[in-house]
Design a protein around this nucleic acid. Structure first.
Lengths: 222, 222
DNA sequence: GTCGACAAGATTGTTGACAATCGTTGCCGG
DNA sequence: CCGGCAACGATTGTCAACAATCTTGTCGAC
């Protein structure tokens, strides 16, 4: 029951249903989620520790708003961690793994040609997730999952930068090539280069504080 | 009060007073820490989310035991994150910062010559902490703090490897030199080299599952 | 002697009510 | 008209009791 409240709240925050800085009143959540107040409380504690909500004593919890500067920080951290994951993935990749990656790339290429940017973004997230899974590195997995959750507000921004999609595809191809070759150093370097460009694209992105009206369930930009 | 229980418990785990796999019975903690049960409960939830305790439903919480493999994973993650921090520190270092680092190094050299390995380990932790502070990177700071907490059981092991202290000092000197020169790439590389050697030393360390009888309040090995 | 069922104890999960605190509103004096 | 102030409503923090569940020890059957 407590885990339920946690999952529900987390999903609502990640999907954008709960806007940043929105107050999370325990009584409201209790009624809306149909769970007891204690469950809501522990869920909020967990989300706070996870960095998704902030909590002031006697003032309640609110959805945490990450600003541009912190977003850049988070992306930097993700960069080095996913670089590490790419290194491990390259060292452990089986032929089947590589085939899977190439299939995702081909799929991404199709969407790209069709102009389906949202589809590209989804394949993007899938590719990164697959690499993380291949790395078999539980700690990095956990850390990246936590960091990714805090970037929901920026997930669709970089894809929209003109010309970004093509460069992104080339970068992904380089990563997959390095992993396929079993070259750990090259894989890590390619991942760092890729996410470095994402950071740069995010910085140059003109619209700040986009209202983030709605969002798909699970994806992650890069 | 809740924060108190959290701090107290965290300190007891980090100091080694609470052994790994030891059961954390809510009633006992309530009596021993002098706080109410609700406070103990939220403290346990936070510690669980932080990865210091594990919790099974209806079976209670126990201090989490991290094995050799996971310790290596954590060190790898710390390695790339502290490398990032070293990069930032090199870019932002003021002359006062550099002087502070050199002072710590000199202090460490003295202890080393005096054979005070525990003192060396402390200065070690101080040096890493100072670098993290200089980086001004809140996200990396938070992540590293979380990771460091899970490695308490291994904190004094690497220092004891014969000849490790001297090499460690040389590595630290290289890091400080790079930071002093403002060379971000070199600083990151030096930090990666240093923590890579720590990982290696940990792997080669003969005694596994050392009982960890007691420990100083706060230090961290490297 | 060993296995399984069963009951007792211990421990956690949940609920509801009460106390403490914060923000706001309306009032009063200047 | 404006600033301070007191009371109120709303919300969170805390506590104690109860229910649910797991573990342990015991007994009986095979």
């Amino acid at each position: 029951m407590a885990a339920d409240a946690y999952s529900l709240l987390r999903a609502e925050i990640l999907s954008g249903e709960l806007q940043p800085s929105e107050r999370l009143v325990e009584a409201d959540l209790t009624a809306r989620l149909g769970v007891s107040r204690g469950a809501v409380r522990t869920a909020l504690v967990r989300l706070q520790q996870e960095g998704l909500v902030e909590h002031e004593r006697h003032r309640g919890a609110r959805v945490r708003l990450v600003g541009e500067r912190e977003a850049a920080e988070i992306l930097e951290a993700r960069m080095v961690l996913e670089g590490l994951a790419a290194r491990h993935a390259a060292a452990r990749a089986t032929p089947e793994d590589v085939a899977g990656l190439r299939a995702i790339l081909a799929d991404m290429r199709e969407r790209l040609d069709a102009g389906d940017l949202l589809g590209v973004s989804d394949r993007n997230a899938i590719l990164h997730a697959r690499l993380l899974a291949m790395a078999g590195h539980a700690t990095v997995d956990r850390l990246v999952a936590g960091l990714r959750g805090q970037l929901v507000r920026f997930q669709y921004r970089t894809i929209l930068v003109p010309g970004r999609s093509d460069r992104s595809f080339a970068e992904h191809t380089a990563i997959v090539d390095a992993v396929a070759a079993g070259d750990a150093d090259a894989a890590e370097a390619a991942m760092l280069r890729h996410l470095g460009h994402v950071t740069q694209a995010l910085r140059e992105s003109p619209q700040r504080n986009s209202a983030s009206t709605a969002a798909a369930p699970n994806p992650t930009a890069s």
